[in-house]
Nucleic acid binder design. Sequence first.
DNA 1: CTGAAAGCGCTTACAG
DNA 2: CTGAAAGCGCTTACAG
Lengths: 358, 358
Amino acid sequence: MTDKTDGMEAEPERRTRRRGSQGVTIRDVAQRAGVSLMTVSNAINGTGKMAPATRQAVLDAIAELGFAPNTAARSLAGAASLRIGFLHAKVNNGFLGAMLIGALQAASLNGAQLLVRGVNSGDVASLAEAIASLRDNGARGLILSPPYAEMLALLPAPGPMLPVAVVAAGSAMPGLVTVRVDDRLAMRQLTTRLLEQGHRRIGFITGPAGHTSSAARLQGYREALAAFGVVADDDLVMPGTFHFHSAMPAARTLLERTAPPSAIVASNDDMAAAVIAVAAQMGVPVPERLAVTGFNDEAIAQTIWPTLTTIHQPVQAMAEQALSRLINRLRGQPVEDDLVLDFALIERASTGAPADGP
Amino acid sequence: MTDKTDGMEAEPERRTRRRGSQGVTIRDVAQRAGVSLMTVSNAINGTGKMAPATRQAVLDAIAELGFAPNTAARSLAGAASLRIGFLHAKVNNGFLGAMLIGALQAASLNGAQLLVRGVNSGDVASLAEAIASLRDNGARGLILSPPYAEMLALLPAPGPMLPVAVVAAGSAMPGLVTVRVDDRLAMRQLTTRLLEQGHRRIGFITGPAGHTSSAARLQGYREALAAFGVVADDDLVMPGTFHFHSAMPAARTLLERTAPPSAIVASNDDMAAAVIAVAAQMGVPVPERLAVTGFNDEAIAQTIWPTLTTIHQPVQAMAEQALSRLINRLRGQPVEDDLVLDFALIERASTGAPADGP
DNA sequence: CTGAAAGCGCTTACAG
DNA sequence: CTGAAAGCGCTTACAG
């Protein structure tokens, strides 16, 4: 265990050509465990039935040798060499990193190859071009984040569209693999929390109409109000676009009403940050005079002051699941279209009971 | 060109076993160009001298067929199957995504395999564990972002350390591959811009002492003042840690001085965001009464209001270069330790001339 | 339940 | 300047 150098007998002169392969291979494991290559492969992949003792012997050998399968060999050999396109917006947000980590993990696990391409956000031509290039390079499926899934419908000639998986979709989308949280339920719980704290006039800033999650979130907000017997006041619902700037006039309008809300629910974190900025400009203390909530739990939720009460989505796990499912589907296995993962309501400093009490 | 289905003659029954390989392979290209596999490979990799006509024929065939090399096969076959560990903090910032995209691209280009691991930030034990696991899995080099490079020195038993590349290092680091922008020069230019606009009392919030870039940025600030003949006032320099929260008391202290600064230079964007938050709380309008600058051009720079004047680092290109260089070094080619890329000074809404004029 | 053989798509020495 | 052969490390049918 402690002696890493055991087994280092004088090597019979290595095969003459090519690199001296520096890693532990399946062959070393087989030798150590006293079985064939095949059996090691079986033990690793859990296929077929094996004698538990054999499997254990292999697993032990793997542990002792610190063996990790070479993903290149694996994907080359496997029914695998499957290429999947990953489209990302050329913007700098935390979502991208988490999605990539998750997708990379699933790709490595499944021996697939990820082809990563940037797309100018909002640019349909750029999207079409990226998809065409991806297809030319052998991509047989696509993994997308939300804005792009909705843009798919806008493409000139969908033609023989590739199978698509959508991460953080707002709702199930017919024919596509979707992995998401329940936006409606999450927003309902978030709003309910504010109601429990005594808030009754609660403003809402929506996402863009085209986004599937916009409607789901608005509905969750309304359901929470209804469940508490609070009459919905349409003057308290303002349109937004998910962009920071869109929420500034919305927040200002809400706060300048004769009867301003004691809380504002924004449909994402960026817009919540804008609400906080406007409140600061207007001298309205958060959370004392105004509670504010976001959605997504992006980096800004913890970077702004006060930190944001928001809904956390497990982006990395979502991407991992989305890619695994897409791969399974491409390999002909039956997979359900829609997977809903758990979200978490995270309470931070931007909320509290209203100053004038419940 | 327009007919994607040409060349689809009745296929001679495919090799019986295994998947019908669905992509265009080097073999198809060779056939189309009327050369051997070898020659195609040569044309692709630009090795050796080829008859220009031959090369062109191959390139044409590649274009016509839309061929893209299978990276799995490539890395498996190449002297390549090189594994590099990529360590990332388990935090949600834009840096990670950009770094991953860049590293992925370089890995794919060079036929290397990236082993991605998360590390609890600030946790030396977690870092040591990740490195050990990476090494066991055959990693022969490491690519790191700044906080980790500095932590390397703290590891209990550096032992036979792996070669390391550092992205966005604050300065050259002996023995490590570093890719960075000139932090000192960037901060000097940023500060100079404020001086040109008429600011004379300029506050500064530093980064943590352990970070190599902290000192470089502070020096750049001081050089700019000196070049303008402005006497440095140590009361205007406050310590920070790069974290949002650390900058709040610092900003408050600066703004409460009898002669408060008309501008505050923060050593990164998060801290600049904190300065803006404090200014809003104190009723100091930005940029009218207070100019604020950041550093890094992370997502928050465009999400906050007013948007931040800051220094843009080409993170993706930096990661790409860092990984390429590390790979070259591992392959025994001579590479220089330190690469300095260009930064960009980005002026947004958080700066302007001081209200009381130059 | 286990193994010998063929093959994934490419690159590397080495001959011509 | 170009090509035939071997090999990278693994998995997939197929026999035992």
